[in-house]
Nucleic acid binder design. Sequence first.
DNA 1: AAGAGTATCAACCGCTCATGC
DNA 2: CGCATGAGCGGTTGATACTCT
Length: 265
Amino acid sequence: MGRAPCCDKANVKKGPWSPEEDATLKGYIQNYGTGGNWMTLPTRAGLRRCGKSCRLRWLNYLRPDIKHGGFTEEEDNTICTLYSQMGSRWSFIASQLPGRTDNEVKNHWNTKLKKKLLTINNEKSPPNNPTLYGSTPTTSLICVPKAETYSFGISASQSQNPTDVIPRLSTKFNSLSSDPIPLYCPELINVSEVGASSKNSTCVFSLSQESSCISNSSSIGLVSSVSMAGNVEVEDSKALVDFSVGSPYGLGNSLYLADFTYPEY
DNA sequence: AAGAGTATCAACCGCTCATGC
DNA sequence: CGCATGAGCGGTTGATACTCT
């Protein structure tokens, strides 16, 4: 027994919105507002749509203050900076960009900015010289040249049962820059999930317990415990590693570019 | 010109969180 | 306190547009 559906699936239309539906929804909200209840709005407005669908259509497309069109370089930098600090908090990031929606920002990141980051690193980073990505010095996106890569290897756990194999990631993430927080994490990191999509191989990992990590940043000193969760997306043997790092000293978050080798089981 | 491959983005899905009862 | 419900969020999908061969 699962959760009750939010609407009568048999009687709601799905798929792209027609201009007539857009006009109906827009007209209704402009005249009467949402009434604080999206679930009943389609019925009140005379639309055969799910309330969630109406909400999404209004917020992402029909709102009068939506900005359509390409992103400026300034917006790109804002997204990169905030993503490096906050992770995929798209609603927050979008709130810092007037007229942009979380969906639009998320799509823009996934289709353009992420690739741009990889491309820029490949083309412009001289060996042995970590560089900041972006035009503003405040950004904390770090492109790590191949020679300084944070290589890591994965070895399988001792389990023989494929269903409960938890590969373990033994590595050190040791940023050469003082910002964000450089870390040395000698502990084994449990890989909670390894999978592959049509485009990228993905490896999701997290520390199963608190780990002692020593920061070599003089401004930070000793970080006694850090929890981490990260994603790795692999493309052409490079990995964009996205770490959310929590510590008693607050939160840090950084993107690293690293070489990646597939585990040998 | 046509088919295949790729990129884009609107929309959906399922989950979590907040709130009210 | 526990449950039901709705809002909001992030991940993913799929249709369409675009580019390449």
